[in-house]
Amino acid sequence: MAVTLYGTFAADRLALLVLALGLTGAALLTYALATVNAGSIVSALVGVAASWSLSAWTRGTGAPGGTVLAAVGIFVAAELAYWSLEQASVPDEGELVARRAAGLALRGFGALFLVACVLAALGLRPGGGLILETVGVAAAVGLLAIVLVLARAVYEAER
């Protein structure tokens, strides 16, 4: 919600569209948590990320301020959402909750550091260049391959 509001206020134009996308994402996330529906979490996070991306696009080229916080916010929201789903089926005992909370905080700080580093690295080569784009395409294709492999594994496990 914070990411959505930040994106809305920071947008140079199309603020209502940014807000609508963000609110849809937030509503989907609420629905996913209320109905313990893991599938809707991805849609919700994509909605929030799209809202923030649209806001960034309205502000022209280059990473806008607050990108690091938005990225960490989306990441922490995703972690908390999946953790909540686990709690719906089997609640953690006290010690485990404390450990997981500490782990989540650590991952949040790690994400903060990572995104800042990535942005700094990208900032050195704003145009990207052929090598960076090739790496990006390879990563995207690789991820799609992972999706296919996992989907197949899940299908076989269910069968």
């Binding site: 991805v42 990320a49 991306s53 990108t67 690091v68 990535v118 942005l119 799609l144 996992l150 899940v154």
Partner: peptide, 25 residues
Amino acid sequence: GGYVVLTALGLLASLIFARPELAAV
């Protein structure tokens, strides 16, 4: 599954829209 989809979408969107901050997200 969710993280794979989010990563893939972020990287693809980054490439398609030429917005490197999406890759950072």
